[in-house]
């Protein structure tokens, strides 16, 4: 989804809203179907956090790279990842994006430039930097995005990656979704008060900005500025967005009853729902209720079809267990990667 600033703001917002709704519908469907126990892998839902992937990926084309972590459904979909292949992967089918070897925590779509997601906190950050290095060394005008949570900024590899990206002025955008919790551990037991992720990145010499991660237009604007800067060759940037995970860390349920966070805090963040806020802005801008309802209904058929496709797909066969341990001796580079090109202006 490529948006231009020449679009009128309501038209832009409506397009972003459609994508927000799509992500929400997909994950609510996963939550609804999960109790059937046919999705036999952990799922980390990003319900409540949709504005960041949608606002950032609106500026990216399939030639740009993106990588993510355990909570990656939104990044994969917003980057253009195939929905049917994602659901088939979660259902453990041979038609899955990783042919059933990965599951929800290992999504990939090379045609969309989504190079992969893996669930070791922080570990795809340097890989995104390396993809940018590869593009730069090959003279390709690609940009690489690393999506991660604030927990990843506590890993050494985050700092090592920022240092090297700045050292080489690589075309990388680091996107931190600060949702305040690492599983059940709140930010205040993990990081000192009064110091932001953005401060850390600034210390490493990156261009930085922070904003409301539940305001899709704010995300869109900050990402647009950072990406334009990176594309001009001015080096890497980090964006920190405040947001909140609604459901449990892993799984389809709400878990406020556990007591690791308060119901009041949860309600406060729910009131800042990125979808509701975009909808209210669209209403205020005069977009008709009928148009909004159409936008909200639109993804349902796609999701229904994708679920049906996934459930009807075959499981891997026994021979697949040992396949793909080693890559064949075919010449690199990876033929599945798209030819590089700038997104349309």
């Amino acid at each position: 989804m490529n948006l231009t600033m020449s679009e009128s703001e309501p038209a832009l917002l409506l397009r972003l809203y459609r994508e927000l709704v799509r992500l929400r519908v997909v994950e609510e469907r996963i939550a609804e179907l999960y109790p059937e126990q046919d999705m036999r892998c952990p799922v980390h839902l990003s319900i409540g956090q949709e504005a960041v992937p949608v606002g950032v990926c609106a500026h990216l084309g399939p030639a740009d790279y993106a990588l993510s972590g355990h909570r990656s459904h939104g990044h994969y979909l917003a980057k253009g990842g195939d929905l049917r292949a994602m659901l088939a992967e979660i259902y453990g089918r041979a038609t899955g994006c990783s042919r059933g070897k990965g599951g929800s925590m290992h999504l990939v779509d090379l045609e969309a430039g989504f190079l992969g997601a893996t669930p070791i906190v922080g570990s795809t950050i340097p890989i995104a930097v390396g993809a940018a290095l590869g593009a730069a060394m090959r003279g390709e005008p690609r940009l690489s995005v690393a999506f991660f949570g604030e927990g990843a900024t506590e890993e050494g590899v985050f700092h090592e990656s920022l240092n090297f990206a700045t050292l080489k002025r690589l075309p990388v955008l680091f996107v931190c979704e600060n949702n305040l919790y690492s599983v059940y551990s709140p930010l205040e037991v993990r990081q000192p008060p009064g110091r932001s992720v953005r401060d850390l990145a600034a210390g490493h010499g990156l261009a930085t900005a922070s904003g409301d991660g539940n305001d899709v237009l704010a995300v869109y604007r900050l990402a647009g500025e950072a990406i334009a800067r990176i594309r001009r060759g001015e080096g890497p940037a980090l964006l920190e967005f405040a947001t909140y995970r609604w459901r449990e860390h892993c799984g389809p349920n709400y878990d406020n009853q556990l007591g690791y966070r308060t119901e009041a805090e949860f309600r406060q963040w729910q009131a800042r729902c990125p979808l509701s806020r975009a909808r209210a802005a669209l209403e205020a801008a005069g977009v008709s209720a009928a148009e909004l309802e159409a936008a909200e209904l639109a993804p349902r058929a796609e999701v229904d079809a994708a679920v049906a496709y996934a459930k009807a797909s075959p499981y891997p066969n026994a021979a697949d267990l040992a396949s793909d341990l080693y890559a064949a001796a075919a010449p690199a580079p990876n033929p599945e990667l798209p030819p590089h090109s700038w997104p349309a202006p």
Partner: peptide, 27 residues
């Protein structure tokens, strides 16, 4: 120096950088 270079004392990240560059077509 673009093809033969030193690196920061960041063994873990630099291995990730090597992996990412391999995914992008380098060896």
């Amino acid at each position: 120096a673009a093809r033969v270079f030193d690196m920061p004392c960041s063994e873990n990240a630099m291995t990730g950088v090597a992996i990412g560059s391999a995914l992008a077509g380098l060896r």
